[in-house]
Design a protein around this nucleic acid. Structure first.
Length: 151
DNA sequence: GCCAACGTTGGC
DNA sequence: GCCAACGTTGGC
């Protein structure tokens, strides 16, 4: 899952321990949260639009399932959704809990050098989705490269 | 349903 | 700031 560290970084998650992944306004990304993600799933936290961009840490899904994104009801939010009501929820999101900040930040250029990661969705051309699925082998490889404590 | 215009993401 | 590669909107 991507986040711009200026908006929300792995350090912010570490401080808060958990956060609602609100503000996702892309149907494909939303569908990953509503249909694919389950409590306990592990998440690689990626810093996008950073210098350099790369993988910064580990999080885990802490909500049983996706819940209504509260920002869709907030008229003052840029994520306000006029089509939404309490009976007609448009945007949903999961809650994430902090796991660890990686010992080694692995930058995007470094990820691109890894042959075994060449099929990873994140590295495919034109993939701007902020939530992307990973193969288990890719997840393990990323954790190894980053010196994760869970490997 | 098609498609042009526009908006967004995110690397560089 | 630039721009490729999307996604979305809205007229027809």
């Amino acid at each position: 899952m991507k986040s711009e560290p200026e908006d929300y970084s792995i350090d912010d998650l570490k401080k808060e321990k958990k956060t609602l992944w609100s503000g996702i306004r892309n149907y494909q990304a939303r569908n990953f949260m509503t249909k694919e993600m389950k409590k306990g799933d592990m998440v690689i936290f990626y810093h996008s639009n950073a210098t350099p961009p790369g993988i910064a840490g580990l999080a885990t899904v802490t909500s049983d399932k996706a819940v209504a994104d509260p920002l869709q009801f907030d008229k003052k939010s840029k994520y306000f959704e006029p089509r939404a009501s309490k009976d007609k929820i448009v945007w949903e999101c999961v809650e994430l809990g902090f796991k660890e900040k990686f010992k080694t930040f692995v930058s995007l250029p470094e990820l691109k050098e890894e042959k075994s990661l060449s099929e990873m969705r994140l590295l495919q051309k034109g993939n701007r989705l902020s939530i992307l699925p990973l193969q288990k082998s890719e997840f393990t490889k990323l954790c190894k490269l980053a010196g994760s404590t869970i490997i």
